[in-house]
Design a protein around this nucleic acid. Sequence first.
DNA 1: CTAAAATGCGAGCGATTGCTCACATTGTCT
DNA 2: AGACAATGTGAGCAATCGCTCGCATTTTAG
Lengths: 208, 208
Amino acid sequence: MPRQVRTTPRKQPRQTRSKETVATILAATSRVLKKRGYDGLTTNAVADVAGVSIGSLYQYFPNKEALVAGLIEHHIETVNRAILTELTRVATLPMAQAARAVIELTITAHAVDPGLHAVLTEQVPRIGKLAKLRQLDEIVHRMVAGLLAHRKAELAIRDVELAAFVLVSAIEAIVHRAALLYPERLRDPRLVDEATLIVTRYLGVAEN
Amino acid sequence: MPRQVRTTPRKQPRQTRSKETVATILAATSRVLKKRGYDGLTTNAVADVAGVSIGSLYQYFPNKEALVAGLIEHHIETVNRAILTELTRVATLPMAQAARAVIELTITAHAVDPGLHAVLTEQVPRIGKLAKLRQLDEIVHRMVAGLLAHRKAELAIRDVELAAFVLVSAIEAIVHRAALLYPERLRDPRLVDEATLIVTRYLGVAEN
DNA sequence: CTAAAATGCGAGCGATTGCTCACATTGTCT
DNA sequence: AGACAATGTGAGCAATCGCTCGCATTTTAG
């Protein structure tokens, strides 16, 4: 398997028919990924599950990695938009409430398509262009840092960047590990309480 | 690639010569993993780099997964032993010092062979027997929970299990993300300070 | 209606991979 | 020294995979 580079479609779907084909292929990619894992993801299998010929697949995706890249891009856009709007919405709320809102949103994001999310973050090699999953982290980091900087006066922190790094890492990991190890606990309000608690205590603000 | 199950050696090395062969093969596996990634890991390449024939490799490793499983097992044992001894050593220290010691050890564990650690945790599919990487998390969780329970009186927490989960997730993620995104920051004492801070404030104990 | 463009098809090529097996070499034991 | 076990060798098989290409079908445009 030679190293591939291009992950952009070789041809844009113009007609309605082909757009449906592309959507079907991506849906099939998601299904195969969830059922067989990244190692079991083959272009032939995707075409098969999608019910299109392997030739059609290669009309819109130059290689196997492009399939996964397409999924990730969609995933990033969705989550990104959600977090962006939420972070601006809670910017003026008391810190405890803001933290709780963001944590709940993070949980929601993990609960949309848990299987796909797990495969995407756990199994897909983070190499080359696929490292774009990191873009999401970076954007979130910047926004959290901005929020902290804007209200630094009321916070018991010195370095905004460092605090943002610590908080984003911690919250993401708590939710992520809960989703993987104890999926049912994602619905447990005590998890949100505890995650909110570590944030408020660390920042030195009121706990609710 | 048919699903494989067995990851135990098909034959135990008895003589010194064969033990060296096994060690060489594992070292080669590590090298190939780091240089080519999990996708680029082939049994032929490993045998080649190790300087042994492919036949010899298959005398001691029943399949490709067994190679990685061997590496992981060794990794777990090493880290496991280190954490175990450290956690018992700091059991009676003030919480802030204990937390700092554990955090520093976690950083050390990530710094031993960062490349291998990264590949192992980021690229190796967490399926089947390879989920044994989770064993490590589980053991650490149990020990931290034990430590917290033993000194619950001085801590501002209600649920020991939940607190252990939150703390282990947070610390591991902070160190892990730092190692991946800003490896040079692993040497920065301010990272340790900040990680210690989030622990002590969360637990409601003195900050040093 | 007709020509061109867009889309869909799938047999199968070339390359690679995991792994076997028949055999050669080295080590151990008496 | 001889016999047997342990270890080492590598050509190559069977299977699989990513992907191409020549062609059929459908849609669009004039």
